[in-house]
């Protein structure tokens, strides 16, 4: 087996060359090649992290804008509700005031009308007594009697009172 012929100086030379060449590889890798790979990977990590950060920030901004929008919407809605309620209240107040005024006027008119009716009835009742008295005097005269004015008045009054009571 050629690998075990340790008398062969080429085997020893091979070890020396191995140390030189492997040392070279280690030197190049440790000082030039691997730091470069490291830098590229680090750059990518940093960039991804930065992008993620930016995305998170954008999301936070969007969320804030959304919240502000929602808040302002809610405020506007509340204001609108308040305005509607105030307008309703005012309209109701006006309507009830107008209705009250109307009621008062109607009541006044009814009162006046009732008073007029009462006066008219009183006048009518007064006129009725005169008419009844003269009618009774004329009837008594026609019948042939001579009517005592006082007795006639008393009789008419009695009859009227009886009617009014009946």
């Amino acid at each position: 087996m050629p690998q075990l012929e340790f008398g062969n100086p080429l085997l020893i030379a091979q070890i020396v060359w191995l140390l030189i060449i492997f040392g070279l590889l280690y030197y190049v890798m440790a000082n030039y090649a691997l730091p470069r790979v490291e830098r590229v990977l680090e750059d990518r990590r940093a960039r991804i992290a930065a992008d993620l950060h930016a995305a998170q920030q954008a999301k936070a901004e969007a969320d804030a804008a959304m919240a502000a929008h929602r808040e302002s919407t809610a405020k506007a809605r509340a204001e609108a509700q308040a305005a509607i309620a105030a307008a309703m209240q005012q309209a109701q107040a006006e309507a009830s005031a107008r209705a009250e005024e109307l009621n008062a006027r109607l009541a006044r008119q009814i009162d006046e009308a009732e008073k007029r009716i009462g006066a008219a009835r009183d006048a009518a009742m007064g006129a009725l007594r005169q008419v009844s008295l003269s009618t009774a005097e004329t009837l008594v005269g026609k019948v042939g009697g001579r009517a005592d004015r006082g007795a006639l008045e008393a009789a008419v009054d009695r009859a009227l009172a009886a009617r009014a009571a009946g």
């Binding site: 080429l10 030379a13 091979q14 020396v16 060359w17 060449i21 492997f22 190049v28």
Partner: peptide, 15 residues
């Protein structure tokens, strides 16, 4: 003269 064999050459090639 320096004992550079095909083995060393392949090492260099690998590196």
């Amino acid at each position: 003269s320096v004992g550079f064999t095909q083995s060393s050459a392949h090492m260099l090639l690998a590196v």
